[in-house]
Write a protein that binds this DNA or RNA. Structure first.
Lengths: 111, 111
DNA sequence: TAGCGACATAACTAGCACGCTATGTAACAG
DNA sequence: CTGTTACATAGCGTGCTAGTTATGTCGCTA
């Protein structure tokens, strides 16, 4: 507290994290697909797309990038709270966190 | 048109430009100050802050960075359409483009 | 226990973002 | 014409971002 100075509007620093996560065509595409996983991804045996979202492999393949690259994009989205990951029987499913997305839009509206 | 492929959702590419401009604590701070220039910047002789916004020098000084660094942040905001620049008697005043800001928030709400 | 499939992590590289100093440009003052 | 002020641009160094391949980890299956 002696070396760092608190910003006048701390919400700005929080917004920056979410906006950096959103400021990527890849990640915006992922969020758009996750609005309706069943419409954009093949059927999944282990996990209802409506409840749990889509698995990593499907997202990676649809993006056309390597699996680690897609995995890191998803990690950025999860770390920012915009997406929730669910591990289930070896697979990881991702779904939107609508409340957090709405909170970011609301915060942005105040700036 | 033969070498580039149109994205399935072109609005995503447009949103990315605005979000990259917003995903910066410096630029979010500028936008916040410009909501009420008269409250955050000294009085200006040549140009009403309510009409024209704040000049480059005041913004740079308040940010605590060099003049060229601040000038480039403002250019990013202008290029993305979020801020409008007005040249007047040697000074350049910057103000928010509320309609563009609202359009970005509306587009983000649809993603 | 061995092997495999799904995903995460590590290590590396290329490109972009952001800070700086130095310099260019345009308008005004004397 | 000269100098000053306000701002933009150029050039450079540094750190982050996003892609790759290689490898690690965990859960299931045989």
């Amino acid at each position: 507290m002696s070396t760092t100075e608190a910003p006048a509007v701390p919400v700005i620093a929080l917004l920056e994290v979410a906006l950096k996560a959103l400021a990527s065509e890849r990640r915006l595409q992922i969020l758009d697909w996750l609005r309706d996983p069943a419409a954009h991804f093949p059927p999944q045996e282990h996990g209802d797309p409506v409840d749990h979202g889509a698995c990593n492999l499907f997202i990676v393949e649809k993006l056309g990038i390597s699996q680690p690259a897609g995995s890191r994009h998803l990690k950025v989205l999860v770390d920012s709270g915009l997406v929730v990951a669910t591990r289930r029987q070896g697979w990881t499913y991702y779904r939107r966190n609508e409340s957090q997305i709405a909170a970011v839009i609301a915060a942005l509206s105040k700036i």
